[in-house]
């Protein structure tokens, strides 16, 4: 399983896709980071007069991670689209199916490989935030909550992306499908006006909002985990079904 995960991670870096996604994400995040830093420096004199003024972490890191969540929502489908669909298209699925790997190990291997890539993205965002230590203090708790939230959010995105990739042999279709699914879930926040509507439970970004504010709510953690597990189980079942039905 780990050998497969390593192969998945390698595959992203052998092809330009991994590097391009990594570079573009970093550019976008750095841009937002610098823009927020600019804002912070401008309003700092006023802030110092407030008794409970928000610090650099609230003004710079929170919007940075909120933006990162949105950007990952767009980027993850591009990373997951190939996971199963490409194996089908290149007829390499037989290679995995006839090797001594259970279906669960195949799906988990794919999942772990992609998560390793996204951990690099999240770590880079975290490293960027840590540079604020150069000019002052930071709310480390808030940063850690954001990092955890982003990792859990990525796991949900990746699991959903892998499942959609199981449904087709065309990576592009898998990317569009996963994007539609994730954007659809995000749009719940905008389209459902009643803030108490139960539909909001399904909005991944709303669950991330808790982490973003530094609130570690078990419900948010549980939702992200359950969401990821649900789609991984669906993916495994889907591949099993294919072996049975042909």
């Amino acid at each position: 399983m780990l050998a497969l995960a390593a192969k998945e991670l390698r595959a992203l870096f052998v092809a330009p896709l991994g590097w391009v996604v990594l570079a573009l994400l970093q550019i976008i995040l750095a841009w937002i980071f610098l823009a927020r830093l600019d804002v912070f420096l401008q309003i700092q004199p006023q802030l110092s007069q407030l008794p409970t003024a928000p610090g650099a972490t609230e003004i710079i890191v929170m919007p940075l991670f909120a933006a990162a969540a949105g950007v990952l929502l767009m980027a993850v489908p591009l990373l997951t689209m190939r996971s199963i669909a490409e194996e089908r298209r290149q007829q390499t699925m037989a290679f995995l199916l006839s090797s001594p790997l259970s279906m669960t190990a195949i799906v988990l291997g794919k999942f772990l490989g992609l998560m390793a890539f996204l951990l690099i993205v999240v770590a880079l965002a975290g490293a960027m935030s840590l540079t604020l230590f150069a000019g002052g203090t930071m709310d480390i708790g808030l940063l850690l909550a954001n990092l955890l939230g982003l990792v859990l959010l990525s796991a949900s995105f990746v699991a959903a992306g892998i499942y959609v990739s199981c449904l087709t042999a065309q990576p592009v279709v898998a990317a569009i499908g996963a994007l539609a699914l994730l954007v659809g879930l995000a749009l719940i926040d905008f389209s459902v006006s009643d803030p108490r509507s139960p539909l909001h439970v399904f909005s991944l970004l709303r669950h991330f909002g808790g982490f973003n504010k530094g609130v570690l709510d078990t419900a948010d953690i549980a939702f992200c985990l359950l969401f990821a597990i649900l789609f991984l189980v669906l993916a495994i079942r889907r591949l099993h079904g294919e072996r049975l039905r042909g």
Binding site: A3, A94, P100
Partner: peptide, 24 residues
């Protein structure tokens, strides 16, 4: 299989190493 299952982006060595590792 009928169509050889190959990861075309890998080198021959890398691919065979992967096959060996997956087969424990």
């Amino acid at each position: 299989p009928e169509t050889p299952p190959l990861y075309r982006d890998l080198t021959v060595d890398e691919f065979l190493q992967l096959a060996a590792r997956l087969h424990r």
